[in-house]
């Protein structure tokens, strides 16, 4: 109920992310070619495509972990330029990485409390309350005094999701969150992400988990060679892809 009212109110406001003719090079390699993308507030976007197609690069540009050569990126009304705006945007954009990237010298709880205290200037009491509630949310609060190395991959990734959520970001970016996991742990992470999708938070997820895309995505984007080749709602995307390369790709990942 709450998420519905939020969505309808938000749809009147500015889009959450705007990318306009973004180009990005790694040396001579043209990693992103004239990328244009608009993501509405509360929208769930899945990006897929072959490896090296620029999917990760695209979402890493959104919180400026990668810079870009030309074009414009606006997040939550703030244009991404070098300098102060980057920090402001990073507070509102949470990111979950393929390799989890938890801080190994801190407990699960400390991992979750650090940024809220240092960036949001919460007291340790407030930060702990927030951390506990999100760790509860990803069903791992019983492990919160352990160190990351004592947890399984799936548990670590759920902690990483909780850590990002503790900043209460408006956007969550997921960069192949299940690709480094053993198969039996993929489901627990996907289930967590599916439950988040109901929060009304904008989500962009680079993944090959097509079941997740069908269940959650408002729109699926297919990338190849640094370009957005096709975008469509999941039903259309999976049943009637227009582009030949999309069909080949879907044939490869769904055809077994």
């Amino acid at each position: 109920m709450n998420s519905i009212t939020k969505l309808s109110k938000d749809s009147l406001t500015e889009p959450m992310i705007i990318m306009e003719s973004v180009d990005k090079y790694y040396g001579a390699f043209h990693a992103l070619k004239n990328v244009n993308l608009m993501v509405k507030q509360g929208e769930k976007l899945v990006i897929c495509g072959p490896s090296g197609s620029g999917k990760s690069t695209l979402i890493r540009c959104i919180n400026y972990l990668e810079d870009f050569a030309s074009g414009k990126i606006v997040v939550d009304g703030i244009a991404l330029t070098k300098g102060a705006s980057i920090d402001a945007i990073r507070c509102e954009v949470g990111m979950v990485f393929q390799q989890f990237n938890l801080f190994p010298h801190m407990t699960v709880l400390q991992n979750c409390m650090l940024a809220p205290m240092k960036v949001r200037k919460m007291t340790s009491g407030q930060a702990e309350k927030v951390a506990r509630s999100y760790l509860e949310r990803v069903r791992i609060s019983d492990q919160m005094h352990k160190y990351p190395a004592q947890l399984s991959g799936g548990q670590q990734q759920r902690v990483a999701i909780a850590r990002a959520l503790c900043m209460d970001p408006k956007v969550m970016l997921f960069d192949e969150p299940t690709s480094a996991l053993d198969p039996e742990m993929v489901k627990e992470v996907l289930d967590t992400m599916i439950s988040l999708a109901n929060d009304g938070r904008t989500m962009i997820c680079v993944t090959h988990e097509m079941g997740f895309a069908r269940a959650v995505a408002d729109r699926v984007i297919f990338m190849a060679n640094g370009e957005i080749i096709e975008e469509a709602p999941p039903e259309t995307f999976f049943t009637a892809p227009k582009n030949e390369r999309t069909r080949t790709f879907l044939g490869q990942i769904l055809g077994h």
Partner: peptide, 14 residues
């Protein structure tokens, strides 16, 4: 590992 700094940056830590 590069991911440590990236994770810290992504959380908005200065």
């Amino acid at each position: 590992p590069k991911g440590q700094e990236e994770a810290a940056k992504a959380l908005g830590l200065k």
